[in-house]
Design a protein around this nucleic acid. Structure first.
Lengths: 132, 132
DNA sequence: CTGTATGCAAACATTTTGCATAAGC
DNA sequence: GCTTATGCAAAATGTTTGCATACAG
């Protein structure tokens, strides 16, 4: 470090591309999907760089990471709104759901057990109408 | 098939061992953990057999399968009660919770969106009374 | 005895890492 | 110019599969 450690990550074309690819909406996308999408868009980028960048973004809490039933890591932007997803096991179609009573229920269960600072992880997997 | 297809899986020592290893409580265990545990218990069993047996038990809905944040598959017995966990972020203490209305809510959300065959993943993380 | 389950090892898929090169600051 | 990020390919990890053998029915 030269002077102040206000270093921060370097601004590279690849990092911007990955961040932009995540930027669209709150859909989940696997590292491989992002890599393929960027390659298709003409952005040449290495697979390892995608993984590294996603890991860094996740560490910085800029994006969220879950696991698909398949075992792959999937990422989404976790900007502000806290919502969950209903994911089609077959085609991957995703619907955002905003639980009306769920958050309250979680808090209640928690305080009944003396827990505080509750965070929760909830995903629904199923088969969408088009795939039935 | 010879006559009636009441075949069912064969009763082998290994299958019994895996099923027994899952039998304790409703905790999640990875395939590798189960394999190691069985080996330690003196039960000689192949890793592939553990994976195959777990996959079959899951297919038969005898056990449930989720993914750890680590990316490994974890299984638990889903005999009757479908419950979730409230986990202390600090000390790891775990409380089993049985959602009264949650399952119904999940099903409703799903059918509102045309989804069927719903499976869900829900974990609550917080800080328990002893750690506050 | 017939056929399924097992065990081993090789195949596979996904993610991580080492190292030389290119690029940011 | 010094240092970090990238790219490639090899390694590591977790899981699946092919095939010969052992065992359940």
């Amino acid at each position: 470090m030269t002077s102040t450690d206000t270093a921060g990550p370097r601004r590279t074309r690849q990092r911007a591309a990955v961040s932009a690819a995540m930027g669209r909406n709150g859909e989940f996308r696997t590292a491989q999907e992002i890599h393929a999408a960027l390659r298709d868009s003409g952005d040449s980028i290495g697979l390892a760089t995608v993984y590294r960048t996603l890991a860094q973004l996740a560490e910085a809490h800029e994006i969220d990471c879950i696991r698909t039933p398949d075992g792959q890591a999937a990422y989404r932007r976790c900007s502000s709104g806290h919502h969950h997803h209903l994911i089609c096991r077959n085609c991957g179609r995703t619907v955002e759901i905003s639980p009306p009573a769920f958050e309250a229920w979680a808090d209640q269960i928690a305080s009944e057990n003396g827990f505080t600072q509750i965070d929760h992880e909830l995903e629904l997997f199923g088969r969408c109408a088009a795939c039935s």
